[in-house]
């Protein structure tokens, strides 16, 4: 199943990656080969088979929705790329009012 260069770039955009043309070309070849390998699954009849998302069946665990304090806020924020007044600084996502 060949994957076109455009498709590679479309998927890359969906998962927020970017490639130069040479990388994208290489990816389209590799992904095509890997997807070909996946074709083997299509030979199985799974019409009446339910999907498994977790192999070990456990009942849904419920708990009280309580706020608990975390004792190392400093340590958390120390990993942030940019912090101001205990808040994480990000690029502006809203337009300034005209």
């Amino acid at each position: 199943m060949p994957i076109s260069l455009e498709e590679v770039l479309k998927i890359a955009h969906l998962c927020r990656l970017e490639f130069d043309e040479e990388e994208a070309k290489k990816f389209s070849e590799e992904l095509s080969k890997i997807l070909d390998y996946f074709e083997t699954l299509q030979t199985l009849d799974t019409q009446d088979v339910p999907p498994t998302f977790h192999a070990v069946k456990l009942p849904t665990p419920y708990r009280e929705d309580e706020v608990k304090s975390f004792d190392n806020i400093e340590g958390l924020l120390a990993n942030s790329p940019k912090v101001k007044d205990n808040m994480i600084v990000v690029p502006k996502v809203v337009k300034s009012p005209a």
Binding site: F38, T46, P50, T52, A55
Partner: peptide
């Protein structure tokens, strides 16, 4: 979805 069904098998 197909893979998740084969996972069942």
């Amino acid at each position: 979805l197909k893979a998740s069904k084969v996972r069942t098998l």
